[in-house]
């Protein structure tokens, strides 16, 4: 497969389980193609240089930085964005626990965290706090201080394992 787009590139790939076809200027990153040409604005612009993780999407089920991947590079691949996390009207357990625990404050970094956490829980349904920290270490959050995010992931993991769990009291009311 060899090609040399003159003006617009035209590609086909799987986006949130559906076939997507899109034409765009070849220099665009996947992030820009998703937001500007496919109107999926859940994925956010952050540092644009691969430091902050806020543009993370899943490509072939692995978290990657959409700001450092050309749109052209996803031809034939499978992409999942935050818009593809829910099952119909049912939110993903991570989306529920992020809302319940206050793991999303301003919410800007949340789509990236959700997708990385989703992939972590697929690989490892019962991660330790350390494993969660390591997996999420590529994502920056300037609001929460991360504790709520770790708790939300632990809670979602427990829910997904079918365990009944309650939020720790200090997580809802804070420390005395």
């Amino acid at each position: 497969m060899s090609r040399k787009p003159k003006q617009k590139a035209h590609i086909e790939f799987t986006l949130n389980g559906e076939t997507a076809e899109v034409a765009f200027a070849p220099h665009k990153t996947l992030l820009e193609v998703l937001r500007e040409d496919l109107n999926l604005t859940g994925t956010k612009h952050g540092c644009e240089l691969g430091e902050c993780g806020t543009c993370t999407v899943l490509v072939d089920r692995k978290p990657i930085l959409s700001c450092l991947m050309l749109g052209l590079d996803v031809e034939g691949r499978e992409v999942t964005t935050v818009e593809g996390m829910n099952e119909g009207a049912q939110l993903h357990p991570l989306q529920e626990t992020f809302a319940d625990t206050g793991a999303a404050q301003c919410g800007y970094c949340t789509p990236g965290f959700l997708l990385v956490a989703k992939e972590l829980l697929t690989k490892n349904p019962n991660p330790t706090r350390e494993e969660i920290k390591e997996a999420l270490s590529g994502n920056l959050c300037r609001c929460t201080g991360y504790i709520k995010i770790y708790e939300a992931v632990e809670l979602a993991a427990a829910k997904m394992r079918g365990e009944s769990v309650e939020l720790p009291k200090e997580s809802v009311y804070g420390y005395e």
């Binding site: 090609r3 787009p5 070849p26 052209l72």
Partner: peptide, 17 residues
Amino acid sequence: MIPTQFDYIAPATLDEA
């Protein structure tokens, strides 16, 4: 941040590259 324009080619073989 937007790069300058470029042509993009994805060769299928090392010889082509």
